[in-house]
Amino acid sequence: MSEATSTLLWRPTGGVKLRQVGLAAAGFVVWLGLWQWMTTTGPMADTDGLPTASRTLSSTLELAGSSQLWSSLGTTLWLVAIALAFAVVAGIAAGVAMGFSPVVSALLDPISQVLRPIPAVVWLPLLLMVLGPAPELGIAMGFLGGVWAVLVQAQVGVRDIDPVILETSRAMCLPRRLTLSTIVLPSAVPYFATGIRISAAFILMLVIGAGILGGAPGLGQLILVAQQTGDPARVFGLVLWSGLLGLTFNSILTAGEALLRQHRGGR
């Protein structure tokens, strides 16, 4: 798991300039133009299942007026929020305990090392068997995919605390609980933020994935149905919507994290 999962490549420095917006827009125009050409007169004209760019765009706009899309988006985000809440609580609790206590670390670290690199999609058939194509499937998948990022960041955050501060608290004879609440947790907050940002990006992918693979409600289910009814323009339109959702989601999270770090003067 790397930090790079949800930060953006496009980082305009010194404020967004007209030239940059223009170039970015030109990039999208080039892409859509190439697509349109390929599917109308170019080598991929009349390919089964591949709609033209104009058909896709009109389907994308059509979807904007459909209540189905908005309720699916709402469901997806709701499931993401619930899964994230579980992941944050469990991840921070376990991560802080592991960072703070060598015994807990020895107990839980090996199992976390084994489970962490296993992609959550592996658990889908198992969870589908137990939970069925229900909202809980999305939440469980999201949790399993998202908890690790929070856990690792919390662990690192607690471990990276300046030893001088800890020595100071020991010199003041603070009890452990007070050390935890006044020193350890506050100084690890920027790490929690990073963990939550990475985790949320994973969870969004997995909640949608649970819909596509297991029929859990939300955006994923919508695209699964569109694929099964053989409506390519709608499928592509939904893909574009999912990109838009992901981009907005990640931008908000990245901005939130940056704001928090700036506010705290953290690293």
Binding site: I208, I212, I223, V239, G243, L244, L245, G246, N250
Partner: peptide
Amino acid sequence: WRSVPPIMLIPP
């Protein structure tokens, strides 16, 4: 395109 969940690419 990177923000599109990878599994989303499968149906199209």
